[in-house]
Simulated scan of single mutants.
Amino acid sequence: MSKAILVDVTKCYGCGACTVACKLWNGKKYDDAKKPTVGENAQLADINWTVVSKHRVADASGKTVWRFAKKQCLHCKEPACASSCLVGALRKTEGGPVVYYPDLCVGCRYCMIACPFGIPKYEWDKSFPEVSKCQMCSGRLAKNEAPACVSVCPNSAMKFGDSEQILKDARAAIASDKRYVKHIYGEKEAGGTAWMYISDQPFDKLGFKATVKNRPLPEYTWKIINKIPAALVVWSGILTGVYMITKRRDAVKSSKNSEGKGGKP
């Protein structure tokens, strides 16, 4: 059964526990000075798979208030990133996550162009860069455990479960409380996503893209991919081979250097 997460924006108070859990679980470094994970300047980046953006909005009475929006890869049901990848480095799993396989990636970055939400990032500062994005803690989901970010939320702003039940819960919440806008973000965007949101504020005021079409996007990307010359596909294969050889050479060199340092003079 495919899994999903429901985020209730009204329950998030911007503590940032989810961003810390994400970095700890995935081994991502901190650089809040340049790439903050919480606040008005919070942005997804190669080292930020989860962020909490801060927004000044008006409540029902017109009073200015703050709202916090937890963001990460939405894990589309029919991901454009995966359909645009020439070598299968991005794949949709049965459980819900869209998983990245770096050993297959040739660095074409078509996934970054195809994603309607602008999620995938690139490790520009590395000698051997990879595409970088949330994996939805696919290893945890395989054990029927919630993603690390969800498991640490102190105010239960996120709910993990079967996708059909999550959607039912979202609809029930909106129907029972007039505060919520009549929109479940992620229910229809890009054909539907594994991460869904409910809010008392229009989603465009919270930094969510409001221009994403409801139609699944792979059919569009395939129209473009089919026009790519076969030579480019062959070239991608060559680049993959070069990358793998270079990566192996560096690993051997690093191993020899380590042995040299630890050996006798």
Rank of each mutant, 00 (worst) to 15 (best):
K29G: 07
I238N: 05
R140W: 12
R179S: 13
L44S: 01
L217K: 06
Q43E: 15
S84L: 07
S151H: 05
L90M: 15
S84I: 11
S2L: 11
M1N: 06
P147E: 03
S2V: 14
S2Q: 13
I225W: 09
G95L: 15
Q165M: 08
G161K: 10
Y100D: 02
E130V: 01
V57C: 07
C76G: 08
D59A: 01
Y185H: 14
L167A: 08
N257S: 10
L167K: 14
L141P: 13
F117R: 02
V9A: 07
Q135S: 14
D204P: 00
K121V: 00
T50Y: 00
E259C: 01
S127A: 15
W235L: 13
V99P: 12
C111D: 02
A114I: 04
A231F: 09
S258A: 15
E40D: 11
A173F: 05
A80Q: 10
V20N: 02
V152S: 07
H183N: 13
C73H: 01
K159D: 06
T10G: 03
Q135C: 02
A60F: 10
C22G: 00
K63E: 14
S2W: 14
Y197D: 05
K3S: 08
V99Q: 12
G118Q: 00
D250L: 14
S236V: 02
Y180Q: 09
R67F: 04
L206T: 02
K29A: 13
W235A: 11
L206W: 08
E130F: 03
A33F: 11
D46Y: 04
A82F: 09
M196D: 04
K121N: 08
K63D: 09
I198G: 03
G27P: 03
P147T: 05
G27W: 05
D162E: 15
T211A: 08
K168A: 12
A210R: 12
G139H: 13
Y100N: 06
E130R: 11
E94C: 05
W25Q: 14
E219N: 10
N26S: 02
A157Y: 09
P79T: 04
D169N: 08
P216N: 07
A4S: 15
K261V: 09
A17S: 12
Y13K: 11
G88T: 10
V51P: 01
V106T: 14
A210K: 15
L44R: 01
T93Q: 13
C134S: 09
L141V: 15
E78A: 15
G192P: 02
K261N: 10
L6A: 05
Q201G: 01
G192T: 03
A146Q: 04
P129V: 09
N48S: 03
P154D: 05
C15T: 09
D177W: 10
H75C: 03
V152I: 15
G39K: 04
G14Y: 06
R91I: 14
K133N: 00
Y243T: 11
K29L: 12
V106P: 01
R56P: 07
V20A: 06
W25C: 09
K261D: 09
G27M: 02
K34L: 10
C73D: 00
K23T: 01
A21M: 04
V52L: 04
V98Y: 00
C85N: 13
C137G: 02
G88P: 13
S199E: 07
L104N: 10
M112C: 08
L74W: 01
Q201N: 10
V152R: 11
V99A: 12
V212N: 06
V234W: 12
